[in-house]
Design a protein around this nucleic acid. Structure first.
Length: 268
DNA sequence: AGATATTCCTGGAGGC
DNA sequence: TGCCTCCAGGAATATC
């Protein structure tokens, strides 16, 4: 499931083939993903030159010299394929550049999105404006301020993109494990000392995953198609019933309708 | 306002 | 083998 590290890996991969290139053609093969695609997507992108690619939380941002930014979100199952040998089922958007590179955005579950926003108005675009800080920029003091007064579990609060932006289920589970914090702890009750364990744990797990080129669960592949390998490094995620290094056993509970994996012995 | 539940979608896994 | 049910999950939306 693409979280921040997978999106970062995707943006870096796309950057290698898109940065500086002119978009020769755009083909939307269906009118919507989770939302309708911009009706003028092809018209506004065709002929534009890509001048910068970047990322905010789990959004990939492609700036063009026409003053527009193409914003993609990979949802649950989205991935970009570069120079695919053939069009596959669920290739919803096709882009060809002036040097003949072909890109296909493939998203079977269609939880992803595509938007086109004037670059000058990016900061005010509601989905971006609502985001909390990047986890790699976070401090314990800032997180404490954002958790202050919140009674919901730290697990669910870390999934809230308005508090910290870019974390998903996998990396929240892994970060809480590394910080030895029980996922059910009310977020507002965590001491500054515990947040001083948690914030570096978040940064470490995110950075390690970026360095590993993104993890792969079922359906993530970096744009070139090679699989990331961080999933081999999960300490708790998807490991229900297996042993923790402390001698405890990894448990699975459901919070907010989604699975949380943790060790009840070392996470308190 | 915050907490909680529901919704979207497909493919893969597991049961029988 | 085939049919069925369940599950995965990000974020918008609805409801209390």
């Amino acid at each position: 499931m693409p979280e921040l590290p997978e999106v970062e890996t995707t943006v870096r991969g796309l950057s290698r083939v898109l940065d500086g290139r002119r978009i020769a053609s755009v083909e939307a093969r269906r009118p919507d993903l989770r939302r309708p695609l911009p009706v003028d997507l092809g018209q506004r992108l065709t002929g534009a030159r890509v001048i910068h690619l970047h990322r905010r939380a789990k959004y990939g941002l492609i700036d063009t010299d026409r003053g527009d930014t193409l914003i993609f979100h990979l949802g649950m199952s989205g991935r970009w394929r570069i120079n695919p040998s053939e069009i596959e089922k669920h290739d919803h958007l096709l882009i060809r550049t002036d040097d003949g590179t072909r890109l296909a955005l493939n998203d079977p579950r269609r939880f992803g999105s595509l938007d086109l926003v004037p670059t000058a108005q990016l900061a005010e675009w509601p989905p971006l404006a609502a985001l909390g800080p990047e986890p790699l920029d976070l401090t314990a003091q800032e997180l404490r301020r954002r958790l202050n007064g919140r009674s919901a579990s730290i697990k669910l609060l870390l999934l809230n993109q308005g508090i910290v932006a870019g974390l998903g289920n996998i990396y929240v589970c892994e970060a809480l494990y590394r910080a030895r914090i029980h996922p059910n702890r009310p977020g507002g009750s965590l001491s500054l000392d515990r947040l001083k364990r948690l914030v570096p744990a978040i940064k470490d797990v995110i950075q390690e995953a970026i360095d590993a080129g993104g993890s792969t669960l079922r359906d993530f592949a970096s744009p070139e198609g090679e699989l990331g390998y961080f999933s081999n490094s999960f300490a708790v995620y998807g490991r229900e019933g297996l042993a923790c290094g402390c001698g405890g056993t990894v448990r699975r509970i459901v919070q907010g309708g989604r699975s949380t994996f943790y060790c009840a012995r070392c996470q308190r």
